[in-house]
């Protein structure tokens, strides 16, 4: 039963939009025909502080209501967060997705590439967000880029459903956000391989 459920853990900082990204992704997964839930953990929310969000997706409407300790996916919106937190509990063979430039692999979190434990994907979401003018107070808002990449790699949410969900939840810069989703999906790369 537990095997049919996929668990995602998202790491970012307050202001990067990971809480709303988790809800958008869960909704797109639900529209694609699976049950999904998204939730987040935070203290008193503030810009720049570490924020963790979770997504569960599966065939059964019943799901546990605990945090996710052994995710199938770890998605890092901000690679400057501490290494230990990021890779903790990621399943053997699990997927790590990082917002980082393709030629900056030395700065991947932890020993991400050591021992072929994980499949590692990169997408330069900061660059893409800036290119589409997605910034708040000078800081890039990378969430829609990361959503496009997550949809492509996981294959459990279509880009059309992502865009439908984004339209409900994000009112500002809609066109730029839709372009960001598409570019995130196109530019995500598996380290040492091709995207599935």
């Amino acid at each position: 039963m537990a095997d049919s459920m996929l668990e995602f853990r998202l790491h970012g900082r307050g202001g990067q939009g990971i809480v709303v990204a988790a809800a958008i992704f869960a909704e797109a997964v639900f529209l694609d025909g699976r049950y999904a839930r998204a939730f987040s953990l935070f203290g008193a929310e503030r810009r720049g502080a570490p924020v963790t969000a979770f997504i569960r997706a599966g065939e059964n409407p019943l799901m546990p209501r605990s945090r996710i300790y052994n995710p199938d996916y770890v998605v890092v919106f901000d690679p400057t967060l501490s290494d230990e937190t990021l890779l903790s509990g990621l399943k053997e063979g699990g997927i790590l997705m990082v917002n980082i430039a393709e030629d900056n692999l030395d700065n991947l979190p932890g020993d991400a590439l050591a021992g072929n434990r994980f499949r590692v994907y990169t997408v330069d979401a900061t660059d893409i967000a800036r290119k589409h003018g997605l910034t708040v107070a000078g800081f890039p808002v990378v969430n829609t880029v990361m959503l496009g990449a997550m949809a492509r790699v996981s294959g459990i949410a279509s880009l059309d459903n992502l865009v439908d969900s984004i339209k409900k939840r994000i009112t500002a810069s809609l066109e730029a956000n839709i372009s960001a989703v598409n570019e995130g999906s196109e530019r995500v790369r598996e380290v040492g391989g091709l995207v599935r």
């Binding site: 909704e27 999904a36 939730f39």
Partner: peptide
């Protein structure tokens, strides 16, 4: 109902 586990969980 529980804070966060229900209050902040998005679900169908």
């Amino acid at each position: 109902f529980d804070g966060f586990y229900i209050s902040h969980t998005y679900e169908p």
